[in-house]
C-alpha cells in the first residue's frame, strides 16, 4: 500500500515584507483522505493553498504532492486537479473548448476528451451548455465549468478553494455528492470552505488556521471530542409518549448530567459534561424509560462549536 501522503507541507512560511501571511504551517493529507481547511477571513487559507499548488513561492518550507516536490511543478501537478483563487475560463471559449484545451495539456487524446468531458459536464450539470460561450454564463455556471476542468483528468488529488461559492443550493448539494463519490475512488481532497456542514459531511479530517498559524489539525471526531471532553454539551431527546416525572428523574440521575430542562411534553434537554461512556449510559436509560425515543440530538460537540471555540476573539466588534 502506498503510504506516501497525497499532500505534505512542512514549515510553510510566506512573508510579505515584515508581515507573515502564514507561519510554519504543517499540513498532511493522507492518501484517500478528505481534509477541510478552515479559518476566519484573512487567516491564510488561500495563501496556504497557493503555496501548495505553486501559485506563489513560499519564503520557507517544503511542499510535496504525491511525494514530488512542488518545485517540479509539472510532475507534481500531473495528477492534481485544482480550483484556486476563483479562476475564470476564457470567456470567448465554450465549455467544450476549455475541456479540450485542458485535456490536451493533461495528455488525453480526442476520444478520451469526448468521453471525460461528457462525464464531468453532466456531473456539474453543464452538458447542455457545452457549446455556448462562457462569457454569457453566470458566475455559478462559470464556477461549474472550472470545477469540471479540475475533474477532467481523473486526478488523484483535488484541491479546491471554496468550490461551492456562487452555486445555488441544488448545485451545492450536487457538488458535495460528486465529491463524496470521489471518496470511494480513493481520491484525496483538500478543500477550503466557510461552509462547516460541507466539511462535516465530506471530510474526515480538518486543519484550522488562524492568523497564519495552524491551531488545530486532525480527525474531525477526535478534535470535536477533544473539546467536548472539557465542555458541556446538550442532549436533546424527543419521545413518542409524553414525558413522565420518573423518566426525567432517571435521566437527571445519570452520571454526567448536570441539568435538565423540559421543553414541552415530548422533549427534554439535558446539560451533559460526562464521558462518552456516560453519554452511552444516558442513551440506554432513555430507551429503558419506555417512552419511545424518536430522536436524540447532540449539540455542542460539532464542528461549529469547535470552530467557534478555536476562533474566539475574531467576533465582529
Amino acid at each position: 500500500m502506498n503510504d506516501t501522503p497525497a499532500i505534505e507541507a512542512v514549515g510553510l512560511t510566506k512573508m510579505y515584507g515584515g508581515f507573515a501571511a502564514i507561519s510554519n504551517v504543517d499540513l498532511t493529507v493522507r492518501r484517500g483522505d478528505f481534509m477541510g481547511l478552515l479559518g476566519p477571513n484573512g487567516a491564510g487559507k488561500s495563501t496556504t493553498l497557493k503555496a501548495i499548488t505553486g501559485l506563489l513561492n513560499p519564503t520557507s518550507g517544503t511542499v510535496r504532492i504525491g511525494g514530488i516536490s512542488i518545485n517540479d511543478h509539472r510532475r507534481a501537478m500531473e495528477h492534481v486537479g485544482c480550483v484556486i483563487e476563483t479562476p475564470e475560463p476564457y470567456p470567448l471559449f465554450t465549455p467544450a473548448e476549455i475541456l479540450e484545451y485542458v485535456g490536451r495539456l493533461y495528455g488525453l487524446d480526442s476520444r478520451e476528451i469526448q468521453i471525460r468531458a461528457r462525464d464531468v459536464l453532466e456531473t456539474v450539470r453543464m452538458w447542455e451548455w457545452r457549446n455556448k460561450k462562457i462569457g454569457e454564463f453566470s458566475k455559478g455556471m462559470r464556477q461549474r465549468v472550472v470545477l469540471a476542468q479540475a475533474l477532467l483528468p481523473n486526478p488523484d488529488t483535488i484541491i479546491l478553494d471554496e468550490p461551492t461559492s456562487g452555486l445555488d443550493p441544488r448545485g451545492m448539494v450536487e457538488i458535495r455528492q460528486t465529491l463524496s463519490d470521489l471518496k470511494k475512488m480513493d481520491r484525496s481532497l483538500l478543500i477550503s470552505t466557510h461552509i462547516l456542514s460541507e466539511v462535516s459531511e465530506i471530510c474526515g479530517s480538518v486543519t484550522m488556521i488562524r492568523d497564519g498559524r495552524v491551531i488545530a489539525s486532525g480527525d474531525v471526531s477526535k478534535l470535536i471530542h477533544g473539546i467536548g471532553a472539557d465542555k458541556e454539551i446538550t442532549l436533546e431527546i424527543k419521545t413518542l409518549k409524553p414525558l413522565t416525572s420518573q423518566a426525567i428523574r432517571d435521566l437527571s440521575g445519570c452520571r454526567g448530567v448536570t441539568g435538565t430542562e423540559r421543553m414541552g411534553d415530548y422533549t427534554v434537554k439535558l446539560d451533559f459534561s460526562g464521558t462518552t461512556e456516560d453519554q452511552a449510559h444516558v442513551c440506554e436509560m432513555a430507551f429503558r424509560s419506555g417512552l419511545g425515543i424518536l430522536a436524540m440530538n447532540e449539540k455542542g460537540a460539532d464542528l461549529e462549536s469547535l470552530y467557534m471555540e478555536l476562533t474566539k476573539g475574531d467576533e465582529i466588534q
Partner: peptide, 10 residues
C-alpha cells in the same frame, strides 16, 4: 483571471 486557471495546470 484566466491566468489562475492556466498556472495551476501541470
Amino acid at each position: 483571471r484566466t491566468a489562475y486557471m492556466n498556472v495551476s495546470l501541470p
